[in-house]
Simulated scan of single mutants.
Amino acid sequence: MSHLTEIIDNHNNLDGVFSIVKHYGVSAEFVTDALVQRFEQIQKNDEESEGSTEEEKVYCEEILNTLNQYYARL
């Protein structure tokens, strides 16, 4: 599977997930908090195992910062 196909499939899958979330009225606060918790867990596990690359660490930090800023606005 090509990288482009993976990107398109992932976007379609996310659209499907968000349709379900919206249908059941799950709040943005809940989704954001769940994502923050999961990314913090990933970050912690990566620090303990030291198996992640610098790029993965930067990505995780960036998305956590963005999600935390968004959560503060809700």
Rank of each mutant, 00 (worst) to 15 (best):
I20P: 09
E29R: 10
H11A: 15
K44L: 07
E56Q: 09
E29I: 12
N12A: 08
Y59N: 06
V17A: 13
E54G: 11
E56L: 05
E6I: 11
S49F: 09
M1G: 10
S19G: 11
E56V: 02
N68L: 12
E62I: 05
Q41Y: 05
T53E: 05
H23A: 10
A34M: 15
Q69G: 10
N68T: 03
Y70M: 11
A34F: 10
T32C: 12
V36M: 06
T32K: 05
I42Q: 07
L35D: 03
T53F: 03
L14T: 02
E6Y: 10
H11S: 05
S27F: 02
L74Q: 12
R73E: 09
L67S: 00
A28M: 11
S49G: 05
S52V: 00
N13Y: 10
Y59E: 09
L4Y: 14
V17D: 09
C60L: 14
V31F: 03
V36Y: 07
A28N: 09
E62S: 12
N45C: 09
Y59K: 10
D46A: 06
E48L: 02
D46K: 01
Q37L: 14
L35T: 00
A34V: 12
V31D: 03
L64E: 01
H3Q: 09
S2Y: 07
T5I: 13
S2R: 13
D46Q: 12
H3P: 06
E54A: 15
I63Y: 02
Y24D: 11
Q37H: 15
I20E: 15
K57M: 04
N65A: 04
E55C: 01
A34C: 13
A28E: 11
N12T: 00
I20V: 14
C60T: 11
D15H: 03
H11D: 08
T5A: 15
L74D: 01
L64H: 03
V58L: 06
V17E: 09
T66I: 05
S27Q: 03
E48C: 04
G25C: 04
R38D: 09
D15L: 13
C60P: 01
V26L: 08
E40D: 12
Y24P: 06
V17M: 07
N12F: 08
A34H: 13
N12M: 04
I20H: 13
S27A: 06
V58S: 10
S27E: 08
I42R: 05
Q43N: 13
V31A: 10
T66A: 12
E47M: 06
A72Q: 06
A28D: 06
S2K: 14
S19K: 15
E62H: 11
S27H: 02
F30V: 04
Q37A: 15
I20G: 05
H23K: 03
H3C: 14
N10F: 10
T53N: 14
F18E: 12
H3W: 13
D9R: 09
S19F: 06
R73P: 00
C60F: 03
E61N: 07
D15Q: 07
Y70I: 07
E48R: 04
V58G: 01
N68D: 07
N12P: 03
G16R: 02
H23N: 03
I63N: 01
V17K: 14
